[in-house]
Amino acid sequence: MIGIVVVSHSPALAEAAVALADEMVHGSGPVVAVAAGAAGGFGTDATEVRRALEKASSPDGVLVLMDLGSAVLSAELALELGPIDVPVRLSAAPLVEGLVAAVVRAAGGADLDTVSREAEAALVPKVTSLAEHATPPAALVPAGESDASVRLTLVNPQGLHARPAAQIATAVGGLSADVAVEAGGRRADASSSLELMTLGAGQGVEITVSAVGADAAQAVAAVREMVEAGFGELEAS
């Protein structure tokens, strides 16, 4: 049976999550070791993660579930602190849902790959059952009612990937205008780099930038300038 490590900023959060998961298997589940808290407060400690990895170590492998950002950093650093002779997988799964799913599946004797997949898919039932409550998209500039708009073609090689999306979000974020970017029939709030990236707009794609508000013209002009300059990614000619 694989072992499981829980890395959390909070000992109380980790212990409760483990107890919740154990209710599903009544003590017949995998070894679940906890590394939570640091220096007496919220935080994570890579040496504690290391100790937890040793405690949960199994020739079948160890799955590591983590909460917020620095828990991931500490888990990665723990792997760097010395060789570990069993397979270890850091899971992108949400902590609570992922842990419950992983404990149940591991208790059934599934291998590391299977348990890891099960944990990563643990949000699916929640997302499916709550589909009708899904958060509506942010209020956007109504189509055809903008104070300023422009159609542009993405000329930089990668299109609206993370960095150009962040550049646009930064530029319009400080302005007094609601700005939308439309591509391929989908609309995104230009102040959200995540939404812009979900447009999946690559090189050569036409986008429409529209804005309402006092700074609408300025916002559209700023985006136009960045797009036409290829977000600084074009080779100097």
Binding site: A38, A39, T44, D45, L73
Partner: peptide
């Protein structure tokens, strides 16, 4: 072991 936050 002593910092706690991401800076650790």
């Amino acid at each position: 072991t002593s910092v706690g936050g991401a800076s650790g």
